[in-house]
């Protein structure tokens, strides 16, 4: 057991967990933030994507202990307040970028990450780029078309 401390959605959290605890289990089971999902559990589907120190990572493929001292953002922490939605969440809603919604938290976290990376690098996030960037996020309902539209729309709303 190790006491693992990190900042999650702006709040300092500290929990004693077994060393083999995955970050996603720390988030879901210990912090009860269940918006982050486990889909495949084999690093393929991206339903578990969260931001660690500003980078999108698969929380099912990282130990909680490796996030000691990190700033973590989950889907629960993207909006400015409890009553608000993040512009990317609004874009998914308006563009029908989800059906069952299981993959959506990971999609949103991957989307905001790609927008900020492309902005920082001065690159254009056009449709082919969005499709390429979604390599690690799998949706079994939508066929991706509206997800891609939603991300393009959300990117313009984040500007």
């Amino acid at each position: 057991m190790t006491k693992v401390s990190m900042t999650v959605n702006g709040k300092a959290r500290s929990v004693e967990v077994p060393d083999n605890t995955l970050l996603v289990d720390y988030i879901r089971e210990n912090l009860r933030l269940t918006g982050t999902h486990v889909g495949c559990d084999t690093s393929q589907c991206g339903a578990c994507v969260v931001h660690v120190d500003g980078q999108a990572v698969k929380s099912c493929t990282m130990l909680a202990a490796a996030a000691e001292g990190a700033e973590v953002t989950t889907i629960e922490g993207v909006a400015a307040s409890k009553d608000d939605l993040h512009p990317m969440q609004v874009a998914f809603k308006e563009n029908h970028g989800l059906q069952c919604g299981f993959c959506t938290p990971g999609m949103i976290m991957a989307a905001t990450d790609m927008v900020s990376r492309y902005k920082a690098a001065g690159k254009t996030l056009d449709e082919p780029a969005i499709r390429e960037e979604l390599e690690g996020n799998i949706c079994r309902c939508t066929g991706y078309h509206n997800i891609v539209k939603a991300i393009a729309d959300g990117a313009s709303k984040m500007a």
């Binding site: 999108a56 990572v57 698969k58 991957a110 690690g136």
Partner: peptide, 9 residues
């Protein structure tokens, strides 16, 4: 290599 989230780690 892999996908963006894999490349980040």
């Amino acid at each position: 290599i892999g996908d963006p989230a894999v490349r980040a780690r």
